[in-house]
Design a protein around this nucleic acid. Structure first.
Length: 443
RNA sequence: GGCCCUAUCGUCUAAUGGCUAGGACAUCACCCUCUCACGGUGGUAAUCGGGGUUCGACUCCCCGUAGGGUCACCA
């Protein structure tokens, strides 16, 4: 790949967001691709904050960008701000004017104010470039006219500043959103006027919102922290984002950060836009949550529950089996699974007797008493296997529904819950016996 | 509207002239089962339309159509 690259040249990509709002997943995906590409080629990945729009740039947004990149594990090699390069911008702007590639233009602004801007002298003609993802793209730049490159000698605008900063940083590959594709020709024009070489370009397809509209900063753009707050793992989001518009060419879907670095290639990036599908993200997140050890699961999910932490540890396997996010895990702990941590649970006589065959209480009472005797033989925290293997034969003999339903209900106080064996192994011998006793008391 | 880009199941995608068009998520059915969940098995579901090129097109070309991007003294 990119065999036309000079051997000594170090691959250098950059992520250049403007801190004028919260970035959305589409923006971060371009960062993901830039990062993966650079690291795969053992190159550099830089972060450059494009803060030349002083009116709208805010520290708060820059901090959010840094937080999110760090959280995703997209570590950068250098971190600069476009505003730091003011000196250089001015110098080259002057050079361009001196060489007659640009000129100061008198404009009549709103009202009678006369204002000056700096315009680029457009040579016209066809400008074409090779996009790694799309192939050759050519545009007739004549209809661009003499476009503005600076508001004043001290205020370069985007097109000019980008060209200068990328060249100064020796950026070799510009990987950015498709919305920049039509900006590229004019930036190439500026490069030529300045005597810079043209880097390689790769324009990524945009990510669409579920309604097919463009994911925009104004509509629905939320900081990436919403995913962290939902209890999405960064490795899951990274995995999902990488898969959105890229695949290795086979059926493989789960990739760790390191595996992505190895497997990624720009050539296999999709040309068309993709919708962001939160459901799929959730299923990938479940996969990565299941990979975690019990300790990691609790600490990374910041999970908490009343009672000793041993009990929470025993509940984790149940959590793994049914939730897609840590937020859901904590909800389960607080709600549906709270019976596992409570001292007293309420039993409804009718529900307890739901499977009673004789229409009275006798069968249910007998079963619970028999089960109690077996539980007596357990250690305080028996394993699931031990509980299952001891109680199941009895249930099979007497009828699973008649034995297991009242037992499970007595232990959980819930119509829906995990099976009684796992409950006993979680709450322990002593509490199991207590709960069965309270159930017997209502009969 | 001009210019540019794109077009395979609902969604993400595989198949770069040669297979019953594959997988995943979602969905449905069945199985497992004391309930819930997990799991297992199977199913429904796609090449935007029309012309070419070719022995043969998802694949190549053209024309439509649709979607997206961009046309700033924002980035």
């Amino acid at each position: 790949m990119n065999s036309d690259l000079p051997h000594k040249e170090v691959v250098h990509t950059r992520f250049a967001p403007s801190p004028t709002g919260f970035l959305h997943s589409g923006n971060y995906r371009t960062a993901v691709f830039s990062f993966l590409f650079a690291k795969q080629h053992e190159g550099l990945f830089s972060l450059r904050i494009e803060d030349t729009d002083t009116q709208r740039s805010k520290k708060e947004y820059e901090d959010a960008i840094i937080d999110s990149l760090t959280w995703l594990g997209l570590t950068w090699d250098t971190h600069t701000r476009q505003s730091e390069n003011r000196q250089r911008h001015r110098e080259l702007l002057k050079k361009l004017i001196a060489s007659n590639h640009a000129y100061i233009s008198q404009e009549t602004g709103a009202g009678d104010e006369r204002k000056e801007v700096i315009r680029f002298r457009n040579p016209g003609g066809i400008v074409s470039f090779i996009d790694i993802i799309r192939g050759e793209v050519s545009v007739d730049v004549s209809d661009l006219g003499d476009f503005v490159i600076a508001k004043s000698i001290d205020e370069p605008i985007f097109h000019f500043a980008v060209v200068v900063d990328d060249a100064d940083a020796n950026i070799t590959h510009i990987i950015r959103g498709e919305d920049h594709i039509s900006n590229t020709p004019r930036q190439i024009l500026i490069q030529r006027a300045l005597g810079f070489s043209t880097p390689q370009y790769a324009h990524l397809p945009l990510i669409l919102a579920p309604d097919h509209s463009k994911l925009s900063k104004r509509k629905g753009a939320r900081p990436l922290t919403v995913y962290r707050d939902m209890g999405i793992l960064p490795e899951a989001l990274l995995n999902y984002l990488a898969l959105l518009g890229w695949n290795r060419g086979d059926d493989r879907e789960f990739f760790s950060r390191e595996e992505l670095i190895k497997a990624f290639s720009l050539e296999r990036v999709q040309k068309s836009g993709a919708q962001f599908d939160e459901t799929k993200l959730l299923s990938i997140n479940r996969h990565w949550m299941r990979q975690l050890s019990v300790d990691e699961y609790i600490s990374r999910g910041a999970l908490n529950a009343p009672r000793e932490s041993e009990r929470l540890h025993r509940v984790v396997p149940l959590l793994k089996e049914r939730v897609h996010t840590f937020e859901q895990a904590q909800e389960l702990l607080n709600g549906e699974f709270s019976f596992l941590f409570e001292k007293i649970i309420t039993i409804d006589r009718d529900i307890l007797l739901k499977k009673e065959p004789l229409g009275n209480t006798e069968t249910t009472r007998t079963h619970l008493v028999e089960i109690k005797k077996k539980i007596e033989t357990f250690s305080e925290t028996p394993t699931f296997e031990k509980v299952h293997d001891t109680l199941m034969p009895y249930a099979d003999e007497k009828g699973r529904a008649q034995v297991l339903w009242p037992l499970r209900y007595a232990l959980s106080g819930a119509i829906h819950s995990p099976d009684p064996f796992i409950i006993i192994s979680i709450i322990g011998k002593k509490e199991s016996l207590q709960r069965i006793d309270s159930a017997l008391a209502v009969l």
